[in-house]
């Protein structure tokens, strides 16, 4: 077994893992602070991830994919850390977070809709002003009525992101469209998406905390719905729609 400590959403986590590749995977987040909590991966955790992935593929009518144990271990670590972070006002969320002039925007959508593509259009539009915080699984920490988005090692297939954080101004739900249209929506209209895109507790007893965090998330940021194509002008529409309030 290998042991190391990482920083996740402002907390230190001691990780005991089976594969060295997991430490390499987390390298940008390794720290030597005293851990706030510890997670330990057992073969059963890897098996759990394998079964879960197969079950989800079947449910979605896809061909069952197979993954290496080393890869599945990184997912198991993610799940265990997220489970502890409920205690620290933090949710793991599926989406791309981009910071512009120190203000964060999160794009979320079903996989394959084009979150990452849209985030890339923003980088092309805004150049150095735009910094990728995370392209897949950022942490969102509720703090004094604000939402702070943190980078994490789980930063998508292109590995875009950094070990940084930014206050979140808006969550934007992305849909494909022929035209580019953005509208501000009420948090209650985003609710189903918030539940779908956040990591839910494995331990039933964490549900009250989880639901409370969703409520704080719904109060702590603005919500938009964007219909967009892949044209560079899509970024102009969404950036102008969200940055000028």
């Amino acid at each position: 077994m290998i042991e190391f400590t990482i920083r996740a959403a402002g907390r230190s986590v001691s990780i005991t893992a089976m594969y060295e590749s997991t430490e390499r995977f987390c390298k940008d987040y390794v720290c030597d602070a005293k851990p706030d909590f510890a997670v330990r991966i057992e073969p059963a955790d890897i098996e759990f991830e394998r079964m879960k992935s197969k079950r989800e593929d079947r449910l979605e009518g896809k061909r069952e994919r197979s993954f290496s144990d080393a890869y599945l271990e990184t997912i198991a670590v993610q799940r265990k850390i997220a489970e502890h972070l409920f205690d620290f006002d933090t949710l793991l969320f599926h989406g791309s977070v981009i910071a512009v002039d120190g203000v964060g925007y999160l794009f979320t959508a079903q996989s394959g809709t084009g979150k990452s593509t849209h985030a890339r259009l923003w980088r092309e539009l805004l150049g150095d002003r735009a910094v990728m915080i995370n392209d897949d699984k950022p942490f969102l920490r509720m703090e004094n009525g604000q939402v702070i988005a943190y980078g994490s090692p789980w930063n998508g297939k292109h590995g875009l992101g950094c070990n940084g954080c930014v206050p979140l101004r808006a969550i934007c739900i992305l849909q494909r469209g022929s035209e580019n249209v953005i509208e501000e929506i009420d948090a209650s209209q985003a609710l189903a998406m918030l539940i779908q895109q956040s990591q839910r507790p494995a331990d039933k007893s964490h549900y009250p905390q989880y639901m409370e965090l969703l409520d704080r998330l719904s109060c702590g940021t603005a919500f938009y719905r964007l219909a967009c194509n892949m044209d560079p002008s899509a970024a102009v529409v969404s950036y102008e729609g969200m940055s000028v309030r």
Binding site: K52, R55, E56, L59, D186, A187, S188, A190, L191, A192, L194, I195, Q196, R200, P201, K204, Y207, P208, M211, E212, L214, D215, S218, C219
Partner: peptide
Amino acid sequence: SRIAGKVVAVPTVGDLDLN
């Protein structure tokens, strides 16, 4: 639970109805 001013019920078991 009450979230964003709405009362919602969410299943806490199984992943069939995860969403």
